[in-house]
Design a protein around this nucleic acid. Structure first.
Lengths: 196, 196
DNA sequence: CGACTGACAAATATTGAAATCTGTCATTCG
DNA sequence: CGAATGACAGATTTCAATATTTGTCAGTCG
């Protein structure tokens, strides 16, 4: 074993690799320990249960979605344009993950059905980013809304069909490859936000 | 056996009863035949497969949701009010079914994941009803929309979270009992539709 | 002392043989 | 003749035994 003591992060790395390799159904704590060259008891010094380990892997994986979204949120230009780009970026990220990491994505889809902690935190972060854009739009007089947070949650709700993993199966359908289904919803949302 | 020859409808009745009693997982074609007092081969004279029988039961069950919705669609008054009532009726129907027929509802939830024929037809019908209300709103100058059908589909998409069975688990949560989550989305939709 | 091990009990998953179910069809019945 | 039967093959499900996995903890090691 290494001279270095085992860190939480190294365990997470090994767990993510193993998960990607064997899939969520076939990954055991012993597999993860073996990848690290330690006994499985040691893994339990860093995570209280297999569920917590899986949640932590998932959280890190979800958090990697944030930087591109934060970049869009910080851009210049009309709030409406930024919001549209932000939503399209979110949708794009989800689809990319569904394609590239089908196993991790399936685990995420399952957890979001159960509305578990990690996913709730993820959603809260998404809402906060939208709220920042909405608040900018309110400040510039472009949007008329009462409460940026509540409105942000409504925007996320209204576009559920396009980013919630329960609908991932439909993302492959031909008719979804372009924004034909998204655009009419986007029109509703943008005009719903617009000051008049 | 009865003097009457066995009808498709009597098979459907028996299948629905059996399904309700045993649940989708435990219902066999033999069970349905037994409830009718015939051999299971006879059931196959009316439905080509178990899947077709299940789809037909589900279709009838879904169609029973239509009358109250059609009643709302035919009411008088501003299109905005009618559309809101229609959506709340749809949401109410779904929740009622989720509570009263959990097994049939679970079967429906499963099928809508796979976007199967019955469900696609059901969705198309829902869209047509909304389109009628939207068209009325356009005629009266209350709404500004380009295409009533496309807009209707967008309204259904934007409210997915509140009527799609994938979210049924959340319908029981305290925060969903009132319209606290629905109202902000409704505001977005209504203002998105409104002529200015 | 703190990081790690590995034997252990209880929970969970796997397996394969037996039972049941689906769908077909030659035959019976009225 | 059309409606219904029931025996049958192949597919699927069940069930109980067997094996693996999770999570704990007393004990080892440096």
């Amino acid at each position: 074993m290494a001279a270095e003591p085992l860190t939480r992060d190294r365990v997470l790395d090994a767990a993510e690799d193993t998960l990607r390799r064997f899939g969520p159904a076939k990954t055991t704590v012993v597999d993860v320990a073996r990848a690290l060259g330690v006994s499985h008891g040691t893994v339990y010094r860093h995570f209280a249960s297999k569920a917590q380990l899986r949640d932590a892997v998932l959280q890190r994986w979800l958090e990697r979605m944030n930087p591109p979204l934060e970049a869009v949120a910080r851009e210049d230009g009309p709030a409406g344009d930024r919001l549209r780009r932000w939503l399209l970026t979110l949708i794009g990220q989800k689809r990319q993950r569904a394609r590239e990491d089908p196993d991790l994505f399936a685990a995420y889809a399952q957890l979001s059905q159960e509305a578990r902690g990690v996913v709730v935190a993820h959603l809260a972060h998404m809402t906060r980013m939208i709220a920042a854009i909405v608040a900018d739009g309110m400040a510039s007089g472009e949007f008329a809304a009462e409460d940026a947070e509540v409105t942000a949650a409504a925007v996320l709700d209204a576009t559920t069909r396009f980013h919630h993993p329960a609908f991932a199966a439909q993302w492959e359908d031909a008719q979804w490859n372009d924004t034909a289904a998204f655009d009419p919803v986007w029109r509703l949302v943008l005009q719903g936000l617009a000051a008049r």
